[in-house]
Write a protein that binds this DNA or RNA. Structure first.
Lengths: 152, 152
DNA sequence: TACAATTAATTTGTGCACAATATAAATAGA
DNA sequence: TCTATTTATATTGTGCACAAATTAATTGTA
């Protein structure tokens, strides 16, 4: 193999060396880990993330929720309608600004905060790393995510 | 706030503290970063990952590809049909075992290996971290992914 | 050789995820 | 005030992602 071929080889993508693929595949792994646990409550993983967001701050608009989750309204609107159909959230137009839709948890939606508590405990047990290590990895991944969104 | 309330609070999920959410949102960020770059070649990010896999080992079955990408055939079959329609891969039943479908790159599919080389270069520039740091993060994420798949 | 069990791929149905577009309300400027 | 622009949601269309069920081929076993 000559020098040029070696140079070319070095730049070519290899699935085993791609950081993006590790993130992509780990995302699927988490989804599959959450799925059966959340299915007991009739929830999907993205729906659970919406509820987690609302549990810490209720009464937000779709846009604010989207900023927290890095999702836009075309993803959230149908998802929120499903949560509304399930009786977990209400969607009401803001009287002060009729463009906005305010999201509020119902009593049942609030109650899931406590009822689903064992889920997050189970997740951290399976992942099996200590809080500090997890925090370090999380910060590193967030830095990458934020770098991408800054440039793009 | 009494001790019980503090204990309860500690266990409740917070989107800002969840490692899984950083992975989930970083995955979307990568997808959005790749999208316009790959659109020039008529590819989606998952389609690109399939091609990357085949570039390093051509002639695999759907099952083998799925094991490499952590995807099952119900995801891959329609994706591979689209790549076939685009003239990038061929799908042929294995004569030795008619249950299997062998995947092979066409000349055009092979050619994309070189033509898309600038894409991965662009990605690493935007992510903007050195190879060693990226490697460390990748290994940590893979360990989490593998821990999940081992238990689930 | 029969025929049950396993395996590989496909099909079906549901739910994200997102670009592009549409709609309607609020705001800004002339 | 009138109209152009901006903003917040919703809609449409395409493509993953996966569980569950289906089909067809192979293997195991009596």
């Amino acid at each position: 193999m000559n020098a040029n071929a070696a140079d070319t080889e070095r730049d070519l993508p290899d699935i085993g060396k791609m950081l993006c693929f590790s993130i992509y595949s780990a995302g699927h792994a988490f989804n599959q880990l959450y799925r059966p646990l959340l299915a007991d409550f009739g929830l999907t993983y993205p729906q659970y993330l919406v509820l987690v967001s609302l549990w810490s701050r209720d009464g937000r608009t779709v846009k604010e929720l989207g900023e927290a989750l890095f999702l836009d309204s075309s993803t959230l609107t149908p998802l929120l309608k499903r949560l509304e159909s399930a009786g977990l959230v209400t969607r009401t137009r803001n009287r002060q600004d009729e463009r906005q839709v305010l999201l509020n948890l119902t009593a049942e939606g609030q109650a899931l905060k406590v009822r689903t508590a064992p889920v997050s405990k189970c997740i951290s047990e399976v992942v099996g790393i200590d809080a500090e290590t997890a925090q370090k990895i999380k910060v590193a991944i967030e830095a990458i995510r934020d770098a991408i969104y800054k440039r793009a």
